[in-house]
Amino acid sequence: MRLTKKEPFFWVTLSCGLVILAFILLPLVEMVTAPSAAVLKETIQDKEVLQSIWLSLYTAGAAALISVIIGTPFAYLLARTTFPGKNLVEAIIDIPIIIPHPVVGIALLSIAGRNYWLGRVFNALGIRIMGSVTGIIMVLTFVGLPFYLNAAKEGFTSISPRLESVSRSLGASQVSTFFHITLPLAWRSILIGIVMCSARAISEFGAVVIIAYHPMIAPVLIYERFESMGLKYSQPVAVWLVCLCLLLFLLLRVLTLHQKRSA
């Protein structure tokens, strides 16, 4: 069905679209334009702000890296095999997307605590989860991993297994085939997965605040400044964080648009 300007329904769809765009953009534009340039400059020179943004970037990046290392082989397995209970496994992978964020934090705490064997193992190894960078990375990996897995799995699925069959018949082992054929053809999906995973990780607040209030990642700092000093002091930090997220988002759009064109 084609929508034409004569149809009243066209105007309904258009106005809904405008409302939605305004709903998304107005608060963001208002927040970004509220602090003056001078305040923004001053904020980014604030050591605490810089540290928190750096920590956010660093932990989200680490979460993405871990996701790539352990997620890529598993995503490939899911793309190439069928087995009983596969739907269940895929549903399990999506659980971190749907459960409330503080619940993630509490759930992770319950295995990292001294009352649980894994917590005691960590303790014996000198690994601290509560209030540590390790804990933050663990939380961010937990929430980001599904996004990476799904993107990478989709990328692998879209590659014809015949290409891999031909590669093997030409003498390449399974591993060689993966690195020479599969990975180069799936790299864009993998990159999209990395961006989605780190974007999700960088925006996490609810789960992190339970595991590690300190050291402070940017969302926790914004919350803290809002609580203790008010809107005016949290806004500039938020602007910088939003800029960072938008940058990631822009990267994602560029990559996906490019993929559409080449497909």
């Binding site: 015949r162 069959s165 093997r168 018949s169 030409l170 003498g171 082992s173 399974q174």
Partner: peptide, 11 residues
Amino acid sequence: PPEKRGISIVY
């Protein structure tokens, strides 16, 4: 395994 057979395939 396929890579050890010396057999090519054309689809």
